[in-house]
Design a protein around this nucleic acid. Structure first.
Lengths: 134, 134
DNA sequence: CTGCATGCAAAAACTTTGCACCGCC
DNA sequence: GGCGGTGCAAAGTTTTTGCATGCAG
């Protein structure tokens, strides 16, 4: 049974109002403004719990720390190869690739993870300068 | 300029002859049979170098350690949710999803990473017992 | 009060790095 | 013999965990 906690509430609210897919560290630093004594362990515990409950989504982009997304609707992400920012991609559903995969696999396909990489609009405009922030 | 090294040769050979996507740790333990004094640092350095050279492929599955694949041809992977094994998937090309993504994105899409998850044949047969090895 | 959640710190898991020595070219 | 590669160990990064205490139910 899960008990209410003000810390978890705050962590959830923070994730839900952000659109930039913060890392656990970012969540920690921001939640700290309201709970100066909160620990990184609590942040990790709650982020994992909220992801397990399906209230938020965990995104492992394979480089650096995992990120968290308050948007649990089906959608994809683009990671800018230049500045590292992670953006939402409201594209049409591509779940048909699960069927293509199923046809090539002897076991059971349950789903997929996918993300795109490229250069974001902001970096294109800036001429792809390294380390520019989006 | 890159010099020949027996250690790198051995690491490359090991990756190329395996089909099970070993981790750096697995490479280390096996290469150790031929080079008892090799260090994990050398293994990591060479795996990264070989991946940069395009001779092997690095696979970040988002859980646990990164894995390495000697098959550099375009193909996808399935990760068994039960035993954690990583298998090749020789499915038809799905690069059309890049175009779908491009249509929904203001920047430039260069490519994608994707992997499927499910239950492998071996685990299905064993009734999905946790911790069974594939 | 009972037990889940927290804060704190230590540790685990994975990877990178500094440095002196070794061995290709 | 010059310089890139190695071995070793230390440190960096990200995440998990053990334990005593705190607080919701």
């Amino acid at each position: 049974m899960i008990k209410y906690s003000r810390q978890r509430e705050c962590i959830r609210d923070f994730i839900l109002c952000r659109k930039d897919h913060p890392t656990a560290e970012t969540v920690y630093m921001n939640v700290q403004k309201l709970f100066p004594n909160i620990s990184l362990g609590t942040v990790y515990r709650n982020l994992t719990l909220l992801a397990d409950l399906g209230e938020i989504q965990k995104i492992s982009i394979g480089i650096g720390a995992d990120r968290f997304d308050g948007n649990t609707a089906p959608h994809y992400h683009v990671i800018c190869r230049n500045c590292g920012c992670v953006m939402d991609l409201e594209m049409e559903n591509i779940s048909h690739i699960n069927i293509l995969a199923e046809n090539a696999f002897e076991g059971k396909i349950e789903g997929h993870f996918a993300y795109f990489f490229g250069i974001c609009k902001s970096c294109l405009e800036k001429g792809q300068t390294k380390d520019s922030a989006c």
